[in-house]
């Protein structure tokens, strides 16, 4: 079994290398000047298209006022989404994809390879330990990184989000590096407190939520970058590659919404498990305190989105603070607080 553990270790190291290459190539892609105009140009067109309808002011204009970009037959339907939602990803997809982005293509390939290595590494680790492969901090990190990667690739299938690539890869490299150097432990069975089917449920969802929130927070950071650029009226190389802040906000929200439901489930499943293992479902253990704080921060995020004056930029800060709290809960609480959740194995 130790050979499998060793093989897993090699694969995870290989995955980290892939992510590192992906970070660099995605960054090269981002640093290139954009050949085509940024997506912002598209907006005035639509506004202009809508204007005559308003001016006409009569029902006659109803059908005629359709934006010219909107095809009215069924053949080119897919494009209608772009016209209907001018601010979403389709805007940015239209511009840069026309330019060949070789660096981005290499980034995607190595990223996919890294994710595959990581997945196999996780599976082998589980076989070597003879249990689910997320029972200590090393394994937890791997699962979170894999979920973040899978989410990124999943979104990429629907819309072009390669601008996220370098940041997701960088997070993956940092997390895996920390896992390999500081958190690594040999595969082994788990102590009695962890011998429960809740280990499979509670912990896997917790690490998935961490991965999901990581992608959302990254998007929120880019939203702030773009928002700043939009307000200044200038766009650096990075901002020029990004879709509108509004579009980034919506992407971040959709991911955060998934993350919030996952996190709610983490709290509930954790409570059930705590009731079985420790005789109380909630005891304000430091880990529980921080998990609660994280939940409240994301609840505040969802509320901020629909409070006037707090949507957009301020809401993005909540998303970022939420993820920072998750990092604190994970790295700081596990090492510096005495908690019942001391299962790092380090």
């Amino acid at each position: 079994m130790t050979e499998l553990g060793q093989l897993s270790l090699y694969l995870v190291t290989a995955a980290m290398t892939c992510y590192l290459i992906a970070t660099v190539t995605f960054a090269i892609d981002l640093s290139r000047r954009v050949a085509s105009a940024p997506s912002r140009v598209r907006e005035p067109q639509l506004v202009a298209a809508g204007a005559p309808a308003e001016a006409a002011g009569s029902a006659t204009a109803d059908a005629a006022a359709l934006p010219p970009a909107t095809p009215v037959n069924g053949a080119a339907r897919t494009n209608a989404g772009g016209a209907a939602e001018p601010a979403t990803g389709s805007g940015d997809a239209a511009g840069p994809t026309q330019v060949r982005r070789r660096a981005a293509a290499i980034g995607m390939s190595t990223f996919v390879l890294g994710a595959l290595f990581l997945l196999i590494g996780i599976v082998l680790r589980g076989i070597a330990a003879g249990r689910v492969p997320w029972a200590n901090m090393y394994e937890f990190t791997m699962v979170a990184v894999f979920v973040a990667s899978a989410l990124f690739l999943g979104i990429q299938r629907r819309r072009d989000v390669r601008y996220l690539g370098t940041f997701i890869s960088l997070l993956a490299v940092l997390a895996l590096f920390l896992a390999l150097t500081v958190l690594y432990t040999d595969p082994a069975a788990v102590q009695p407190a962890l011998q429960s089917y809740w280990l499979a449920i509670h912990v896997s969802i917790a690490s998935s939520a961490m991965g999901v929130f990581a992608v959302a927070a990254t998007t929120s950071v880019l939203q702030l970058v773009k928002d700043r650029a939009e307000h200044r009226g200038t766009a650096g190389r990075l901002a020029a590659k990004l879709p509108t802040a509004d579009s980034l906000e919506r992407l971040s929200y959709r991911i955060n919404a998934v993350g919030f439901v996952l996190w709610t489930f983490v709290l509930i499943s954790g409570s059930i498990w705590a009731e079985h293992a420790w005789g109380r479902f909630w005891g304000w253990d430091p880990k529980e305190v921080w998990s609660f704080v994280i939940w409240v921060v994301y609840a505040a995020y969802l509320h901020a989105r629909s409070t006037r004056g707090w949507e957009g930029r301020r809401a993005a800060w909540f998303s970022i603070i939420g993820f920072v709290s998750i990092l604190v809960n994970y790295y700081v609480v596990n090492f510096f607080f005495s908690s019942l959740h001391s299962y790092s194995g380090v």
Partner: peptide, 13 residues
Amino acid sequence: PRRFSRFPVRDAF
């Protein structure tokens, strides 16, 4: 509403 012109998601045929 009387007119659909201001709905971003609309169609006519």
